[in-house]
Design a protein around this nucleic acid. Structure first.
Lengths: 146, 146
DNA sequence: CAGTCTGTGTCATCATGTTGACATGGGTCA
DNA sequence: TGACCCATGTCAACATGATGACACAGACTG
């Protein structure tokens, strides 16, 4: 069973998720919340739907995450649509601060996860996983649920 | 962002889950249900808790999956505990038949996912993912939730 | 211009999985 | 033997995410 790619993939994703949850809990952040903040740092002004697609969840779920972070003052949603009804979202200084702390915690987890891998192996792993995801993209509903 | 192992890992797992859901839907099976059947084929007599651990979910969730499959006649739970309160679970002929069909569908997905990888690359991928999971196991709650 | 299509935000509802709690069976050790 | 600890099955409450549906803004086409 441990030789099935699908199984070990699920196992690795599950363990990583659990480890990140534990690392982020002291900061009062969940994994989706952290991912949302990090995405907005890299690409300020993303809309809710864009965030949802980048994170492989529905835009409804992402809406809840964004609302929660907005209520806590981590980010702001421009009240004026940018293009259609898309509301640009950006980090606040408070959100940026929380994100910095979160990145430290997450970095510890990533370091530990990749400790046994060489830099080459890490690049190869990324490339292979990306190739797997790309090969399946047309079997996965022609696109993410949202 | 596509160079972060954690991100591509989540992406690959998400796409694979979605593809398997689509492949199994015509058979009336969900991914957890399929995984449960396949586990029982490889290791007949597993208890609910053992199944849950192998699948990285709580024993409560697994209990629901097992109950559903039992109600549909796919498996049977021995009414007499084997060791403590552990109830051994086994596939019925009907369950074995459904599983065979499901394995065909899943095989198509796996083949497609791994099409771009050589046999060596596939083994390497499995080994690296397993190593990552093992390295994180002590950060992930000292064990699975159940 | 009217009609249609796509993308977005949002609401209500539902499915799935988790946590917390409890009783029970089995083992260990004083 | 009795006290303790651990694992299991099960119930209840809760959290999270998905689906379906609706309204609206923009683009494209006849």
């Amino acid at each position: 069973m441990d030789e099935q790619v699908g199984y070990v993939l699920k196992k690795a994703a599950s363990v990583l998720r659990s480890a990140m949850d534990n690392a982020l809990r002291p900061l009062g952040l969940t994994v989706p919340q952290y991912a949302c903040l990090e995405l907005l740092r890299q690409q300020p002004g993303l809309s809710g739907s864009e965030l949802a697609r980048a994170m492989f969840v529905s835009r409804q779920s992402m809406n809840l995450v964004v609302k929660g972070l907005e209520r806590r003052g981590m980010l702001t949603r421009s009240p004026v649509p940018r293009h259609g009804k898309a509301l640009p979202t950006e980090l606040t200084p408070a959100g940026l601060g929380q994100l910095a702390a979160a990145n430290e915690a997450v970095s510890v987890v990533e370091k530990k996860m990749l400790a046994a891998l060489t830099a080459d192996a890490e690049r190869r792993l990324c490339a292979d996983l990306t190739a797997c995801a790309a090969a399946l993209s047309d079997l996965a509903g022609e696109a993410d649920p949202d």
